[in-house]
């Protein structure tokens, strides 16, 4: 049963990574335009992420 000492934290850390990633993506406006972002990969020229275009 000593394996639990490793397994429980591992499961918590994995879940925590997922949660952190989700909140990070949410705050970074990545869910703003799901449909549009899906289509953008079809652009011939490289698309610039919103942050870069904003700076000009």
């Amino acid at each position: 049963m000593n394996i639990l000492v490793i397994l429980v934290p591992v499961s918590l850390v994995l879940g925590g990574i997922w949660l952190g990633g989700f909140i990070w993506a949410l705050k970074g406006d990545q869910f703003e335009d799901l449909e549009g972002d899906a289509q953008r990969i079809l652009f011939d020229e490289a698309d610039q992420p919103p942050e870069d275009t904003r700076e000009g």
Partner: peptide, 16 residues
């Protein structure tokens, strides 16, 4: 125009 980004979901473009 400094920048323009189309939002396809909202069918709207936001222009700076």
């Amino acid at each position: 125009v400094i920048s323009a980004r189309v939002n396809l979901g909202l069918k709207r473009v936001r222009i700076e």
